[in-house]
Amino acid sequence: MKLRELAHSRTGDKGNTVNISVIAYDEKHYPWLEQHVTAAVVKAHFGELVKGEVIRYQLPNIGALNFVLKDALAGGVTRSLALDAHGKTFSSAMMALELPPPPGSAA
């Protein structure tokens, strides 16, 4: 299944770094996300788009993960040649991530 079925997401930018949240619609799915949406999985998913490291922060208090992707904006918001210099659309790429359906889900 796609991550979009279990979680929603928003991108923020700072310099050449973006952060992408992954927030469980239902907090009961948070442990599943924590298990399957790791920093390594996200780094591999974004491939050449993200040149630097990916750091993951866990926020069980709100059922969310926060990914910080470094060297990800083609030189940074203010210099980038990219159309989407802020990386505003990156959350949509995150939502396309494939993961196994959680136990007991209809999918």
């Binding site: 928003r10 923020g12 770094t17 952060n19 949240s21 927030i23 619609y25 926020l59 709100i62 926060n66």
Partner: peptide, 29 residues
């Protein structure tokens, strides 16, 4: 959902959001 998305917007380490006034900690929000 709208509040959680905005809380994490442009946030890096939730336990250390640096401002001139305080090192804010959102990890228990």
């Amino acid at each position: 959902a709208t509040c959680k998305e905005q809380m994490l917007y442009e946030l890096h380490d939730p336990a250390a959001y640096l401002t001139p006034d305080v090192t804010a900690d959102f990890s228990g929000v």
